[in-house]
């Protein structure tokens, strides 16, 4: 299904997340990912929301989100925007082959080992959602045991 990325600037105060997620639920938009954080101006927070749906559907949300008194601006990001996600994962490596596999994977995606303890390795991945999906697919294929897999959700910035 098509994905649309919305970048929403809001007043940084309690209750805004509730209003935004409530509105998306009410209008039956499916949220694929939602992240929120303060901007460089701490009175302003920024939401990156990925919804499943067509551009037309996303355009409808723009007006509705704008209606929320605490929302400053809503923008649908172009397809060529820079999109990143972070994954923190604990993996168990049972063989030398798996270790080599992981090292090779580092060529394709930004992987950083954070610590290693016996067979267990904790890694951090930073890339696009698609690359992360591909990486997940390949380690499953290599039978690497996933102890924990935590995704940050998408953040994105326009070019």
């Amino acid at each position: 299904m098509e994905k649309q990325i919305l970048s929403v600037l809001v007043e940084n105060k309690p209750g805004v997340l509730f209003k935004i997620s409530g509105l998306l639920r009410r209008k039956r938009f499916q949220i694929d990912s939602l992240t929120v954080g303060k901007t460089a101006d701490e009175t302003v927070a920024q939401f990156t929301i990925v919804i499943l749906g067509t551009l037309e559907e996303a355009q409808k949300t723009v007006g509705m989100l704008n209606r929320i008194v605490d929302v400053f601006s809503v923008e649908i990001l172009d397809k060529d925007s820079i999109v990143r996600e972070i994954v923190l994962a604990r993996l168990e490596l049972d063989s030398e082959n798996q270790r080599i596999f992981l090292q090779e994977a580092e060529q394709k995606i930004l992987v950083q080992a954070l610590y290693q303890k016996n067979k267990e390795i904790c890694v951090e991945l930073i890339d696009t959602s698609q690359k992360i999906e591909e990486f997940l697919f390949s380690i499953k294929k290599a039978n690497i045991k996933i102890l924990e897999w935590i995704r940050s959700g998408v953040i994105a910035i326009k070019k």
Binding site: Q59, K60, G63, M64, N66, R67
Partner: peptide, 8 residues
């Protein structure tokens, strides 16, 4: 007056 009404 409400832009969210357009095309709704």
């Amino acid at each position: 007056i409400d832009p969210s009404e357009f095309g709704k």
